[in-house]
């Protein structure tokens, strides 16, 4: 039985469709990524799977429990690391975990041992008696991860676990997640950081405007684009593009300013030939670059827009969040 099975799950807020009948499943022990820009419906999906929001239609099971009819069993078997900090800053790290353990019905001895274990895992052991108010953003996130793991859930949901953290702290959080993966826990992670999805996830679902556009391993997703991406800067990009098409180097080169780009199967062999053809045609090439495709290219391929461009349009995200009613 898969850890999470989602079947035509849909969520509408006052007529606006945030999640549009998505279906997918996540295996046991898998690190599954939901990748998309802000407002794509990632958090809404997580909220439905964690029973904080009721779906408009469709169904899903988590650990075999139906999110609509068996929400208490779902909640007992999952851990959640929220995007916005939910640790209580008015309490110590230990108290936060202690209360959490009690809420999940952990007995005294087991609770104490487990608190020590998870605090050590996120390297907050020395800070256990300090007020969370004095913690940095990274420390709070680590405490939140520790708390999500305390009751040994079978599935851990991580909603943008590194949002707003500096690159060094982000790497640090990645290490914890990797450590957990080795422990065999299934994890579902949302992110709009492409490198995060690429680096961490076993499989990635690209989600945009409430729909899943593609779902596969990062390697296979990148394989869709082809072998390499070639990017050429030229004085006369239009002329270059015409020449590339005519000579059969590629079918549909994209022209963006002075840059012509296209993807090919084996770029290495092609580059010298392109150089030769260009010089014959009298087109001056200023710079030529060949690289392996990234998830960014995959994202553009499926959604037609760059995830980074969408990111700056943050206003829509805030409105979506408010619509949750928290």
């Amino acid at each position: 039985m898969d850890a999470v099975i989602v079947d035509k799950l849909e969520k509408k807020f006052n007529g606006f469709t945030a999640v549009d009948k998505i279906s997918f499943s996540m295996k046991r022990g898998e690190l599954f990524g939901l990748l998309g820009p802000n407002g794509a419906g990632k958090s809404t999906t997580i909220y439905m799977l964690t029973t904080l929001l009721k779906p408009t239609s469709g169904s899903a099971t988590v650990n075999g429990f139906d999110i609509r009819t068996d929400s208490e069993a779902v909640r007992k078997s999952i851990g959640i690391v929220f995007q916005d900090p939910t640790v209580d800053i008015r309490l110590t790290a230990y108290d936060n975990l202690d209360i959490h353990g009690r809420l999940y019905g952990m007995s005294g001895q087991k609770r104490k041992e487990r608190i020590k274990e998870v605090l050590d895992l996120v390297e907050l052991g020395e800070w256990k008696d300090k007020m969370v108010r004095t913690f940095s953003g990274g420390m709070r996130r680590r405490l939140e991860i520790a708390r999500g793991l305390l009751h040994t859930p079978e599935v851990l949901f991580l909603d943008e676990p590194t949002l707003g953290l500096d690159p060094q702290t982000r790497r640090h959080i990645w290490q914890y997640i990797e450590k957990l993966r080795k422990g065999g826990i299934a994890m579902m992670l949302t992110t709009h950081y492409l490198e995060e999805a690429d680096y961490l996830c076993d499989r990635v679902a690209i989600i945009d405007r409430g729909r899943i556009k593609a779902l596969d391993t990062p390697r296979s997703l990148k394989g869709i684009i082809g072998g390499n991406i070639i990017r050429i800067e030229a004085r006369e990009p239009q002329k270059l593009a015409e020449m590339l098409k005519k000579s059969g180097f590629c079918k549909a080169p994209k022209v963006d300013g002075a840059v012509v780009s296209f993807d090919v199967k084996e770029g290495g062999k092609l580059v010298p030939k392109i150089m030769e053809a260009a010089s014959k045609a009298g087109i001056e090439i200023e710079n030529i670059e060949m690289r392996l495709p990234s998830l960014e290219d995959v994202f553009i391929h499926y959604t037609g827009t760059s995830i980074r461009a969408e990111k700056s349009a943050g206003g829509g995200m805030m409105m979506g969040r408010r619509a949750h009613g928290f």
């Binding site: 909640r75 007992k76 939910t86």
Partner: peptide, 15 residues
């Protein structure tokens, strides 16, 4: 609720 503290309690397995 504004600070989202309540979410932690709302996802815990209790009514």
């Amino acid at each position: 609720r504004k600070l989202d503290f309540l979410k932690e309690v709302l996802v815990a397995p209790l009514s």
